[in-house]
Nucleic acid binder design. Structure first.
Lengths: 207, 207
DNA sequence: TGAAAACTACCTGAATTCAGGGATATTTTC
DNA sequence: GAAAATATCCCTGAATTCAGGTAGTTTTCA
């Protein structure tokens, strides 16, 4: 089992490497961001499995998984992250990753996941499936597309603008701004502007 | 060198353990949160060194460091985290920790840090000192001192809680919450909660 | 031990947000 | 050309936030 590790924390990578080697796997490469991971695949006999973190600089795990599932269809992917939010999990499942385990799991889980995926099956921890299903009962959290206008409003909200200020700035009625506000919260399943700004930053909608 | 590891990600702990053992250290215990770490110290011959993560459930690293530096003065502490925000670093330095390294550093750094601290000196990576000083030269980014309570309120605001909800959760009057809210905005020179959340995320106060 | 800081609580009143409706015009997409 | 998405606008009413105060108690620390 040839494995490529992608995680921006070297210390974590090195620790995982030990464990994987002990379990009889060969770590053929490491990458500290998405770009490096893809570059590795272009220049080498590619591995059988990619252990992928979500949170990385340059290019995040979601993007990497997307590209890989397009171009390197036979490469297995196990997502290895500390994010247990349904949002991320569902996104990854949709892309067709082969496993999803949390960093707070132990070595046994890691090895079990690799073994399972190696044999052609999928591996998802208990917590994962649980979280996803809890999410399905709330169909609201399906990542929804925001319009250009809505993104604009979000940025203004993050800039501490009030509805009235935004209305003047965009030459719109304040009712319109209120409608946009309402629709944004509805689409994203949020409760107020504070939550919106947090969401927006997490998802890179604003810097 | 007897070491106690405190980190909520088991996978990370196990990886680090390998490296430390290889470097001739003895990992005498692990803890998945602050409470466990302190409990360990009460029940065992305590170790020489504590490797401490900041972000943990139950009791975070800052609190742990504080308590330890009060009660177990000869126990060394190396903070091992992915947070490189001056806010955290300065907080920890103030508490008198003996080392501060980032998880994106490699094994060499880890070993070097342990060796250095073992010999009685302090160890701080390049990035760390850099970030702290950059903070000093830019007085803007010195987060005006926020109190513990205020930080707590900020986190709740970011969690979309209303004043009433926070009041009930913290067993306080809603007037009190409103006062905190007001003081926070005043201290940071902000206008509303949306701006507050953005500020908090940028400065690593939340997430 | 005494001052400063932090935490607590209350008040008034204006401004703003949020939840729930409904409606129309334009543009894009199929 | 029809359907869907987008952008615009309006309304009511409750809830919440924000700005401006005052003030007592506890904790911290020099």
């Amino acid at each position: 089992m040839k494995i490529l590790l992608a995680d921006d924390h070297r210390m974590f990578i090195e620790g995982i490497s030990y464990m994987l080697r002990e379990a009889g796997c060969e770590v053929v490469g490491i990458a500290q961001n998405g770009t490096e991971a893809l570059a590795f695949l272009q220049q080498n006999d590619y591995p059988d499995l990619l252990m992928l973190d979500i949170e990385m600089p340059e290019m995040d795990g979601v993007e990497v998984a997307e590209k890989i599932k397009e171009e390197y269809t036979e490469l297995k992917i196990i997502v290895l992250t500390m994010h247990d939010e349904p949002e991320f999990i569902r996104q990854m499942l949709k892309l067709g990753v082969d496993g999803y385990i949390l960093k707070d799991a132990g070595k046994e889980i890691l090895v079990e996941a690799v073994e399972t995926v190696k044999s052609g099956k999928k591996y998802f921890g208990e917590k994962i499936t649980e979280n996803v299903f809890s999410g399905f009962t709330q169909p609201k959290s399906i990542p929804t597309k925001l319009t250009q206008r809505e993104l604009e409003i979000i940025r203004l909200i993050a800039d501490q603008k009030t509805t009235g200020q935004m209305a003047r700035e965009l030459f719109l009625s304040k009712h319109t701004i209120e409608t946009h506000r309402k629709n944004i919260l509805l689409k994203l399943g949020l409760k107020n502007s504070a939550g919106l700004v947090k969401y927006a930053m997490k998802h890179g909608l604003i810097e």
